[in-house]
Design a protein around this nucleic acid. Structure first.
Lengths: 248, 248
DNA sequence: CGAGGGTTTGAAGTGCATCAAATAGTGTGG
DNA sequence: CCACACTATTTGATGCACTTCAAACCCTCG
């Protein structure tokens, strides 16, 4: 399969692009290309003029900001299927965060001006983008809330729950998607704190830890422990997509 | 002046509505009304089906969420000129937070379905809404960052700076817009912590406290103290509007 | 003047960060 | 297949920031 066909297939299935006119979609495909970035490579930097945006195909991309005094705040770590930099069109054409590949990662690179003109010309696309942005905002809201009201063990519990298939509450076995220290950073805590907090969670909810594999024996108990300090009941739909929405 | 004319004048000047077709604007005005809510009154509750959205005319409105275990996370406290509930159109027609009047407050109440149809029918309106949502998101981003990377005295300093006219760096005298304990909650800390942190800030930057009046003698020093732990340089444009964008 | 809020101050506790060191895991070249 | 080097993770000890609980203070307003 040629690269163009591959890109076409993926974009067609994406919520943001599915409302695109076929002719516009062809344009998107024509001006896009698949890129591969190595672990640790920077994709773009906060405030840099934005020319292109991206969709993750495989691997993981870390979104973050750096303060003047050098510390780093991680905004999110995106799996396959997620867009990054797409909101720059409305942000003065500057990237609102920096992005770095956490491991070898493949992405589709798409010109922003094309997105801009499609939004301007096609009301359906504008509408899709509005829903998309609202969704991103909801996730951001939840993220903020978690940081403020949940303590470290609760945040980990919440993270684990989001990694499960949230339909059923039976025992589940989970693989951490990336290094523990990266999970820690993602959850806004130090690796040492993560380690200790995970032990506490084990005490409190009876889960089992085996390297990067975690067995949830008592999901109900985990929910009670973690979701108490949250404004929404357990199957937190908005966040589910965060970890599981994949293109492939 | 009649109520309708008053509403018209205000909406015309608002960034979101200025692109409205005159005929649509007339519709908005016809179906809107000015309401007055008392201190402590709840305007709407998180997750409640959303029928109307609001623009603050005077007073203050607190946006917040409550966790299952009862604690409250304050999202923002809106002054005149700000919209609330307007994004519900894209949020499953549910309010994404609760809203309460902090004091006697006047608002314009506008039907959401009107907003929805105007966005669907008028590309300019859709575009205005996209920019609006991007702006809201940027502010939210900054809020998140502050909570994570700034300590209590720095957050207060940052809050004070946002209350000043950010053009000039000369000495400034500020009135806290509402009770200290509310400012504390707004900044995500306890009243006691606020009190102590403000004293520390006084030590560190030489400001003077007099009840709810605060004199900034050395703005430069305050900037250096507060903005070190932030990803953006001082005149933080996105946030300025937050405290000062008024309709009147 | 006295009641009741908001605010400050004190003392003690908690949670997380930091620094330091031990341990486990992983991949490499021999 | 083993030994080594290197990294990720855990564990321990200590410190700091913020919270909590309690009491005093202060201000305003009936």
């Amino acid at each position: 399969m040629g690269e163009s066909e591959a890109i076409l297939k993926i974009l067609e299935k994406s919520p943001v692009f599915e409302n695109c006119e076929p002719t516009s979609l062809t344009q998107f495909v024509a001006q896009s290309n698949i890129i591969s970035v190595e672990k640790g490579q920077i994709l773009f930097v906060h405030e840099e003029p934005a020319k292109r945006f991206f969709m993750v195909l495989g691997g993981w991309v870390k979104l973050f900001r750096e303060t003047l005094d050098g510390s780093q705040a991680i905004i999110d770590i995106l799996p396959a299927g997620h867009l990054l930099g797409e909101t720059s069109v409305f942000d003065d054409n500057k990237y609102p965060y920096s992005a770095e590949a956490v491991e070898q990662t493949k992405l589709i690179s798409i010109p922003l001006n094309l997105l801009k003109s499609e939004i301007d010309d096609n009301p359906k696309m504008a509408s899709a983008m509005l829903y998309h942005m609202a969704k991103v905002r909801r996730q951001q809201d939840r993220e903020l809330e978690h940081l403020v009201v949940q303590n470290a063990p609760q945040r980990i519990g919440c993270f684990l729950l989001r990694l499960t298939n949230q339909r059923e509450e039976g025992p589940a076995k989970i693989q951490l998607p990336y290094d523990k220290s990266l999970v820690a950073a993602r959850l806004g805590m130090q690796p040492e704190t993560f380690s200790r907090a995970l032990s506490k969670l084990k005490e409190a909810t009876g889960l089992e830890i085996n390297g990067s594999t975690i067995s949830l024996n008592n999901v109900r108990q985990l929910i009670e422990f973690s979701c108490a300090a949250c404004s929404s009941e357990f199957p937190c739909k908005d966040l589910k997509s965060k970890a599981s929405c994949a293109t492939q």
